[in-house]
Every structure is written in C-alpha cells, then in structure tokens.
Design a protein around this nucleic acid. Structure first.
Length: 412
DNA sequence: ATTGCCGTGG
C-alpha cells in the first residue's frame, strides 16, 4: 500500500469520523478500535486516550488493538514512536505491569529486539524486575513466533537477574514454546520433571491446568488422540481441575465427529463437573450440526444461546450465516446477518459474498443492496474494489458509476 | 492480584 493512498484514506476517514461522535471514554474508544481497520484512524483514536493515559487494563487493550492494526500495515516506525514515547512521558513507567504491557506489545508487532531492549532498560527506568516482566518477554517471543528464544532466555535471564525467579507462568510459556516448535515430547518431559521435584528442592513451581491444556491442544492438533486423552487423565489425577477452555480443546477435536456421539457427551460431562459451557463450546456444537446437515439443530443452538447465558460472537455469526447460505436459506441467513450487524460482528468477505449472491438470485435485491451498503462502511478500504466488482457483476449498480470507478472495479 | 491455555472453517 503506497503512502499516498494511505493518507487519502486517512483524510476521508477523519472527515467521516468528525460527523459521528467524538471519542471520549475508553470503552467508546475500544468499540471504535474494534471496527476500525485503518491504522491512521486507529492511531488517532488511540491518541485521544493517551492524553489522560492510565495503567488500566482497558487502556492496554486499546493500545494492543492499535498496535495490531499498525503492525498489519507494516508501520513499525509508528509503533516504535508510540511505545517509546510512553517510556519518557508516562508516569506509570516505573510500574512493572505497565512496562510489561509495552514489552508484550513489541512482541505482538514482531519486534522482539525492541522488547528485549525494553527489558534491559528497566534499571535506567527505575522499574523493578521480577518474573512478571520476564514472563512478558517470554510472551513476546511466542507472539513474534521466535519460539527457540524462550529456552535461551530461560537459561540467560534468571542467572543475570537474581530477582527473576521463573514461576508457574514462566514454565507454562516454556511448555508452550516446546509445543509450538513441534517438540510436544519435550513439553511432556518437562511437566514430569516439574512434578517429580516439586517438593524436594524448594521449587515453588507447579504444573497448572493451563499448562496441561497447552499440551493437550498440541497433541490433538498433531492427531495424537490417545496421548491427548492420557494427559487429560494425568491432569485430573494430579488435582488440576479442567476449566471451560480445557473442555473446549476437547470439543475442538470432538466437533469433527458426530454431534450426538462426540460433542453432546462432552458438554454433558462439562455440566456435571460444574463447568458452564461458553459461547465457544456452543459454537463447536453448532458447527458440528452444520457439518452434519442438521441446520435446524444448529439454529436451535444459536437461538438458545441467550437462555444459556451466552452471547453470540463473530464466529457464531460467520459460521451460521455461511451454512445457512450453503443450504440455500438466504432469508434466515439475512436475518442472522442483520443481528450480526446490529452487534458490530459481521461475517467475513467470503461469507457475505455468498449471502449477497443468494439474495440477488432470490430477487431480494433490496436486501442485497442493504448488505453491501453496510459492509462498505465496516470493511477495510482494501476491500472496496472487491465489493464494487461484485455489485457490477450482479447488476446492483445502475449506471451512476463514473468511468474511473468502473476502471478501478475491473482492475480489482 | 496483575501475566500463560480454546475460537480460521468451509
């Protein structure tokens, strides 16, 4: 993307945003950031916050989203400016939680060298160094996909800084790094090693349900179902109670099978263990019904979400709209889409293309145009041409398009 | 107490 087209887009979006509400609160900014894909606009929304910057989790979340947008656009200099300015300007920089968030942000942007430098600067910045910032640095390795750096830092950092003592979270990340590198065996060996010398040598490290879940997830992903189930038993036997996420890892595998035989029994087991299935759990059930041609049952899961204390998320809408369209039920597909738009969780481009094509086929041209009008506002600018192309193909535009626009659409 | 596990598929 050239810088000139980027600044044009910036201008257009800034103009449109002045007609809407001005960002004042953190929660409003978060909502805006979620639906804004333009890095410049994300940056400008974020900047309105950092004036009265706090160390709250909400601000960190807003920063994280902004950096995600900038990283996707390859705007590393802007990321550096954003983060470095907080080292000099923020009153919270001496708080380890605040600085740790900066380290993780660098990791998320793939800038591990900057993350490491920030960690090394802590003495100068007057920030105490414990396992918290160490774990942030390890997380930065995972986020930037430099998994082999985790064991290296494990060797290096605690030896260099005696206040940094690896804890259960540090070991959890080390286990994750082994799994990500394809060495699940090493991860399991490490778990056994920790469990083996837990009481003897003053180590306060324990293997948590989260660490077990990481390994079980990796085993399912590589198709080692037997070993996954064996480690599950080991986890429960060691007194680690599985949470909803742990069950969801099992459901991830189970949903590739049959709903009644594979998925429902796991959901029952969850409930009888006192764990409430969450939106993700129900998404797996719904997806499984869809894949097995039981679309009515899938719709029932969707409609029962609220009664089960769950709210549909973006995946819920995307999956259901997709399968409704594949089944030719564009009317219901449109109604579910409307609900997704109301909650600012519209499906992806490919799914909506199916919906628009189907609506046109069923002569529901007004609905089709409505979808396009909404999504043109919601999608990143890079999708505009693709939408225009589809409009022309389906005959949804009536000659008011300029020759230049036609040219753009043809080139898309 | 703050951080580390699941969600992207057609």
């Amino acid at each position: 993307m050239s810088s000139s087209s980027s600044s044009l887009r910036h201008c257009r979006l800034l103009c449109s945003s002045t007609t809407t509400t001005t960002t004042t609160t953190i929660s409003a900014a978060k909502a805006r950031l979620r639906s804004v894909y333009d890095p410049d606009e994300a940056l400008s929304i974020y900047t309105t916050l950092s004036d009265h910057s706090t160390a709250s989790a909400s601000t960190r979340y807003a920063q994280d989203l902004t950096i995600k947008r900038l990283a996707k656009a390859g705007r590393y200099a802007d990321i550096e400016n954003l983060i470095e300015s907080q080292k000099t300007n923020s009153p919270h920089i001496a708080q380890e939680t605040f600085l740790s968030a900066l380290i993780r942000s660098y990791g998320r942007a793939g800038m591990l060298d900057h993350a490491r430098r920030t960690f090394d600067q802590m003495d100068d910045l007057g920030t105490p160094r414990t396992s918290l910032s160490f774990n942030a640095l390890l997380t930065a390795c995972i986020q930037s996909k430099q998994f082999d750096q985790v064991p290296k830092l494990f060797e290096q950092i605690p030896n260099k800084h005696n206040k940094v003592v690896p804890d259960k979270v540090s070991y959890g990340i080390l286990i994750r790094s082994f799994c990500e590198s394809g060495n699940v065996d090493s991860a399991i060996a490490l778990i056994h090693q920790i469990n083996g010398n837990g009481n003897g040598n003053g180590s306060n490290v324990e293997v948590t349900a989260i660490s077990y879940t990481t390994v079980i997830d990796a085993l399912y992903r590589e198709g080692n179902v037997g070993e996954a189930e064996r480690i599950w038993s080991e986890m429960v036997g060691n007194g680690c109670a599985p949470d909803a996420t742990a069950y969801n890892v099992r459901l991830m595998h189970a949903h590739q099978g049959k709903p009644d035989v594979d998925v429902v029994p796991v959901l029952d087991e969850m409930s009888s263990s006192g764990i409430k299935p969450d939106t993700i759990s129900y998404n797996y059930l719904m997806t499984c019904y869809c894949k097995n041609g039981m679309i009515e049952d899938a719709v029932k899961v969707y409609e029962g979400l609220k009664g089960n204390g769950c709210a549909p998320n973006a995946t819920t809408f995307r999956t259901l709209v997709y399968h409704l369209c594949k089944n030719g039920d564009f009317g219901k597909g449109f109604r579910v889409y409307k609900e997704s738009a109301k909650r600012d969780k519209i499906p992806d481009f490919g799914t909506l293309k199916l919906l628009v094509r189907g609506l046109v086929e069923k002569k529901k041209v007004k609905d089709a145009k409505g979808v396009i009008r909404t999504v043109k506002k919601k999608f990143p600018a890079s999708f505009l041409n693709a939408w225009k192309k589809l409009e022309i193909e389906l005959g949804l535009v009536s000659g008011e398009q300029s020759p230049a626009e036609e040219e753009i659409a043809k080139a898309a």
